Amino acid sequence: MAQRLTQQDAETLALRALAFLAAEPERLEPFLAATGLGPATLRAAASEPGFLVAVLDHISGSDSLLLEFAGNLSLNPEIIADARRLLGGTAPGDFT
Protein backbone atom coordinates (compact mmCIF):
# COMPACT_ATOMS: atom_id res chain seq x y z
CA MET A 1 0.00 0.00 0.00
CA ALA A 2 1.38 3.40 -0.98
CA GLN A 3 2.02 5.89 1.78
CA ARG A 4 -0.18 8.96 1.51
CA LEU A 5 1.81 12.18 1.81
CA THR A 6 0.41 15.43 3.12
CA GLN A 7 1.64 18.85 2.02
CA GLN A 8 3.50 19.13 5.33
CA ASP A 9 5.09 15.69 4.83
CA ALA A 10 6.29 16.74 1.38
CA GLU A 11 7.72 20.02 2.71
CA THR A 12 9.47 18.19 5.56
CA LEU A 13 10.95 15.68 3.13
CA ALA A 14 12.22 18.50 0.90
CA LEU A 15 13.79 20.24 3.90
CA ARG A 16 15.47 16.98 4.87
CA ALA A 17 16.74 16.72 1.29
CA LEU A 18 18.19 20.22 1.59
CA ALA A 19 19.90 19.27 4.86
CA PHE A 20 21.25 16.15 3.13
CA LEU A 21 22.70 18.29 0.34
CA ALA A 22 24.11 20.86 2.77
CA ALA A 23 25.84 18.20 4.88
CA GLU A 24 28.52 17.58 2.25
CA PRO A 25 30.16 20.26 0.06
CA GLU A 26 30.43 17.81 -2.85
CA ARG A 27 26.63 17.43 -2.77
CA LEU A 28 25.81 21.10 -2.09
CA GLU A 29 28.09 22.73 -4.68
CA PRO A 30 26.37 21.22 -7.75
CA PHE A 31 22.99 22.28 -6.34
CA LEU A 32 24.21 25.84 -5.79
CA ALA A 33 25.69 25.90 -9.30
CA ALA A 34 22.45 24.63 -10.83
CA THR A 35 20.28 27.15 -8.99
CA GLY A 36 22.64 30.11 -9.18
CA LEU A 37 22.48 30.50 -5.41
CA GLY A 38 25.38 31.06 -3.08
CA PRO A 39 25.83 30.04 0.53
CA ALA A 40 24.79 33.53 1.65
CA THR A 41 21.55 33.51 -0.36
CA LEU A 42 20.53 29.92 0.33
CA ARG A 43 18.64 30.64 3.56
CA ALA A 44 16.60 33.48 2.00
CA ALA A 45 15.84 31.39 -1.08
CA ALA A 46 14.55 28.56 1.10
CA SER A 47 11.44 30.63 1.87
CA GLU A 48 10.68 31.28 -1.81
CA PRO A 49 7.85 29.39 -3.53
CA GLY A 50 9.27 26.70 -5.74
CA PHE A 51 12.53 26.35 -3.85
CA LEU A 52 11.58 23.05 -2.25
CA VAL A 53 10.53 21.75 -5.67
CA ALA A 54 13.99 22.68 -6.98
CA VAL A 55 15.60 20.75 -4.12
CA LEU A 56 13.59 17.63 -4.94
CA ASP A 57 14.22 18.06 -8.68
CA HIS A 58 17.94 18.20 -7.99
CA ILE A 59 17.88 15.08 -5.80
CA SER A 60 15.77 13.25 -8.38
CA GLY A 61 18.05 14.29 -11.23
CA SER A 62 20.80 11.92 -10.11
CA ASP A 63 20.06 8.26 -9.51
CA SER A 64 23.01 7.90 -7.16
CA LEU A 65 22.01 10.99 -5.15
CA LEU A 66 18.37 9.88 -5.04
CA LEU A 67 19.26 6.38 -3.87
CA GLU A 68 21.72 7.66 -1.27
CA PHE A 69 19.18 10.13 0.15
CA ALA A 70 16.34 7.59 0.16
CA GLY A 71 18.64 4.98 1.68
CA ASN A 72 19.70 7.33 4.47
CA LEU A 73 16.05 7.79 5.43
CA SER A 74 15.05 4.18 4.71
CA LEU A 75 12.47 5.39 2.19
CA ASN A 76 11.28 4.06 -1.13
CA PRO A 77 12.85 6.45 -3.69
CA GLU A 78 9.44 6.85 -5.37
CA ILE A 79 8.25 8.87 -2.38
CA ILE A 80 10.60 11.69 -3.47
CA ALA A 81 8.70 11.95 -6.78
CA ASP A 82 5.39 11.81 -4.89
CA ALA A 83 6.52 14.70 -2.68
CA ARG A 84 7.69 16.65 -5.73
CA ARG A 85 4.31 16.26 -7.43
CA LEU A 86 2.50 17.30 -4.27
CA LEU A 87 4.61 20.45 -3.88
CA GLY A 88 4.81 21.55 -7.47
CA GLY A 89 2.37 19.77 -9.68
CA THR A 90 3.59 17.71 -12.58
CA ALA A 91 7.30 16.95 -12.59
CA PRO A 92 9.39 17.61 -15.72
CA GLY A 93 8.89 14.73 -18.13
CA ASP A 94 5.84 13.44 -16.25
CA PHE A 95 2.95 13.30 -18.68
CA THR A 96 0.59 11.08 -16.69
Score class of each variant (00 low, 15 high):
65 L>A: 07
36 G>P: 13
33 A>R: 12
51 F>L: 05
50 G>Y: 08
62 S>R: 13
74 S>K: 14
70 A>E: 04
39 P>W: 05
50 G>L: 05
67 L>S: 05
46 A>N: 10
73 L>W: 11
81 A>F: 15
73 L>D: 02
55 V>H: 02
48 E>V: 06
61 G>Q: 11
40 A>Y: 04
75 L>G: 02
59 I>D: 03
36 G>Q: 13
40 A>F: 12
56 L>Q: 08
28 L>S: 04
64 S>T: 14
51 F>T: 03
36 G>E: 15
34 A>E: 15
28 L>N: 06
39 P>E: 15
72 N>S: 13
32 L>I: 02
32 L>N: 06
66 L>S: 11
75 L>Y: 11
75 L>W: 02
42 L>H: 08
70 A>I: 02
36 G>R: 10
42 L>K: 02
64 S>H: 13
70 A>T: 02
82 D>S: 15
36 G>M: 08
40 A>Q: 15
46 A>I: 00
60 S>C: 11
46 A>Y: 05
47 S>F: 06
55 V>N: 10
45 A>W: 12
35 T>P: 08
48 E>Y: 08
53 V>C: 12
59 I>H: 06
53 V>G: 06
61 G>F: 11
30 P>G: 09
60 S>P: 01
55 V>W: 05
32 L>Q: 10
43 R>E: 15
41 T>N: 06
79 I>S: 12
78 E>H: 03
28 L>T: 05
